[in-house]
């Protein structure tokens, strides 16, 4: 089948969706209509883990998934969701273009039948959404903060001082409203889409995790394509990821203005104490050596960049 079904848990209002539309258009025009892409929003065909499983089974599907979800298959990919790993989009690109990363991707494809089309879909930095001002980890003591129910996230929130409380994203709004939880953490576009600004008063820009996703699909489907078609899909996926990330950046500026207009207090604290306390996550999850490797890699790229200027 020459159709690829791309699934995301996000809605059509999310900038990632615009990226997927670009991916669809580019694949369809470049392949002169021989390949087609269908986009499904709102997890219509299953949640992200379900979709990865379907791709493994050989269904012609792909999904926007974060590193944490892929970590059960390829442990190293889990580090992409760890706190304060990369500083910006440039560093992210250096990382996913590195031989280190393609080693992981190859292993994922051969061992588990999952193909990474591109891993440069940046959804924004995660910030703290609270009912009171926060300036240091100590302020988070005893605060029940909703986070994603995966080890990296739970460890990160715990290390930053709050009490991690996993809750379905759908229940975060009512949970905050009814004080089932005291706080949440999310990227700007996510909190905007879920209207969390209606139920919180403070945004603290810790940027503790860069939310990075990849377009991951069935290796069996990818291998059924001709070489030139494979190139078309890969190139489109990379360009679409870049485009979507740019959209996010533009969107975030607008959202921040709108939040201020609604009276939400936005604070930019010194992130050093949060960084310090989050370091323990790497040790706890066994990523300490890998973290050093990646920092060296990023440092080298930085130096090369500086010397070329």
């Amino acid at each position: 089948d020459s159709t690829l079904n791309v699934i995301t848990s996000l809605s059509t209002n999310d900038p990632m969706y615009e990226g997927l539309v670009k991916f669809k258009n580019q694949v369809e025009t470049a392949s002169q209509g021989r390949l087609s892409v269908r986009i499904f929003v709102g997890s219509q065909l299953g949640n992200d883990s379900d979709m990865l499983e379907q791709a493994m089974l050989g269904a012609n599907v792909a999904v926007l998934a974060d590193g944490g979800r892929l970590a059960v298959y390829q442990n190293e990919l889990g580090i992409l969701g760890a706190p304060y790993l990369v500083e910006d989009y440039g560093q992210l690109n250096v990382l996913v273009d590195s031989p280190l990363f393609s080693e992981w991707a190859d292993s994922l494809a051969t061992r588990h039948g999952l193909h990474i089309f591109s891993f440069n879909w940046w959804q924004g930095a995660r910030h703290l959404l609270t009912q009171k001002p926060v300036s240091a980890p100590a302020d988070l003591q005893g605060i029940r903060m909703r986070t994603i129910g995966a080890p990296v996230w739970i460890q990160t929130i715990d290390a930053m001082g709050a009490t991690p409380t996993p809750l379905a994203w759908a229940e975060v709004y009512s949970g905050l409203q009814q004080q089932v939880i005291d706080a949440a953490e999310a990227q700007y576009t996510g909190m905007w889409g879920a209207r969390l600004y209606e139920v919180i008063t403070h945004v603290t820009k810790t940027g503790h995790i860069q939310l990075i996703s990849g377009l991951v699909g069935s290796e069996r489907w990818y291998q059924s394509l001709s070489l030139s078609q494979q190139k078309i899909v890969t190139r489109a996926a990379i360009e679409a990821g870049r485009f979507a990330s740019k959209q996010v950046r533009a969107e975030e500026v607008k959202i921040e203005e709108a939040l201020k207009a609604r009276g939400v207090v936005i604070a930019e604290p010194d992130t050093t104490p949060f960084r310090q306390s989050a370091k323990v996550v790497y040790k706890n999850l066994g990523y300490a050596a890998l973290f050093r490797d990646i920092q060296t890699l990023l440092q080298e790229a930085d130096d090369a960049n500086d010397s070329s200027h």
Partner: peptide, 13 residues
């Protein structure tokens, strides 16, 4: 078949 196919996947948190 499904039981055999995906032993790595974990349940939630």
């Amino acid at each position: 078949e499904l039981f055999m196919a995906n032993p790595q996947r974990t349940l939630g948190s």
